[in-house]
């Protein structure tokens, strides 16, 4: 199973882009959240983009990651986006109600 690495976090303009691993579960969640928060401390970062291109599995731990980041940036007018989410991931969004706060593109 692949692990998420430092280079999966990139800042482009005012967006933090996080390329998520193949499986987003509790086992990986802590590292993703911790690293994301390190980048969020940089002043220029306003929005967060979760890239699901490589992701084939996500459980409620992924919802926790996204909700946590949303809480941190929404009060400063930041937005959370999800890109390349396949139909399974979109079902998870729908069941959890997350599609109301995340822009799925």
């Amino acid at each position: 199973m692949d692990q998420i690495m430092e280079e999966d976090f990139r800042v482009i303009d005012n967006c933090l882009i996080i390329r998520l691993p193949e499986e987003v579960d509790h086992h990986q969640a802590g590292y993703i959240s911790e690293n994301a928060d390190k980048h969020l401390l940089r002043k220029e970062v306003r929005h967060v983009v979760f890239d699901f291109e490589n992701t084939r599995f996500m459980d409620s731990s992924g919802i926790g990651i996204i909700m946590g980041r949303y809480r941190k940036i929404s009060c400063f007018g930041g937005r959370v986006y999800a890109i390349h989410a396949d139909s399974q991931i979109q079902r998870i969004f729908k069941v959890s109600g997350l599609h109301k706060i995340v822009e799925i593109m």
């Binding site: 509790h26 086992h27 969640a29 802590g30 599995f57 409620s60 139909s87």
Partner: peptide, 30 residues
């Protein structure tokens, strides 16, 4: 879809056992 449903449900229950049942917070993806 069925496979994905089953995997998600199993993952939730197993994660619950690990972090709530046994309070094994170590690992936690680091």
């Amino acid at each position: 879809e069925e496979l994905s449903d089953i995997k998600t449900a199993v993952s939730e229950a197993v994660t619950n056992s690990i972090i709530h049942g046994y309070e094994n917070l170590y690992g936690y993806g680091r």
